[in-house]
Amino acid sequence: MKKVLTVLGAAVAGFAAGVLTAPKSGKETRKDLKKKANELKKDADKCAAKAKTVAKDTAASLKSGAQKVGKATTEAAHDVKGDVEKSLK
């Protein structure tokens, strides 16, 4: 995620430098800046949605894994308990 933000930051800086040094009127420059800001917002929203999906999937996977480990641990504890009880008889 840090790399994505670095690339986006560099893109914004490059675009801003290009726009500010271009021979355009203030109105045209503001229009270009607004257009680029909207594009970057859309890209950021897509990236955030993707990150949210990945986070949900990861959480679900971790929950499932934890449940499996818990079940296996419970079963192992019951087996050990049964073995101990048998050996004490």
Rank of each mutant, 00 (worst) to 15 (best):
M1Q: 11
M1W: 09
K2W: 02
T6K: 13
T6Y: 06
T6H: 08
T6I: 13
V7R: 15
L8E: 02
L8S: 04
A10Y: 10
A10I: 09
V12R: 12
V12P: 00
V12I: 14
A13R: 15
A13H: 10
G14S: 12
F15H: 07
F15V: 04
A17G: 02
G18H: 01
V19R: 03
L20S: 13
A22K: 03
K24Q: 14
S25M: 04
S25L: 06
G26A: 03
K27N: 03
E28T: 07
R30S: 14
K31Q: 10
D32S: 07
L33P: 01
L33C: 04
K34R: 11
K34T: 12
K34C: 04
K36Q: 10
E39M: 14
E39W: 05
L40T: 12
L40Y: 05
L40I: 12
L40V: 15
K41Q: 07
K41G: 03
D43P: 00
D43E: 10
D45L: 15
K46F: 02
K46W: 01
A48L: 05
A49Q: 09
A51G: 03
A51T: 11
K52G: 00
K52C: 01
A55V: 05
K56P: 02
K56N: 10
K56H: 06
T58Y: 03
T58H: 06
A59L: 05
A59R: 03
A59N: 04
A60W: 00
A60Y: 02
L62G: 00
L62H: 03
K63T: 09
S64Q: 11
S64A: 13
V69H: 07
V69P: 01
G70D: 14
A72R: 09
T73D: 08
T73C: 06
T73F: 09
T73G: 01
E75R: 10
E75Y: 01
A76N: 05
A77I: 07
A77F: 02
H78N: 07
H78M: 04
H78W: 02
D79P: 00
D79Y: 04
K81C: 06
K81M: 07
K81A: 14
G82V: 10
G82T: 15
D83G: 01
S87A: 12
L88I: 08
L88G: 01
K89V: 11
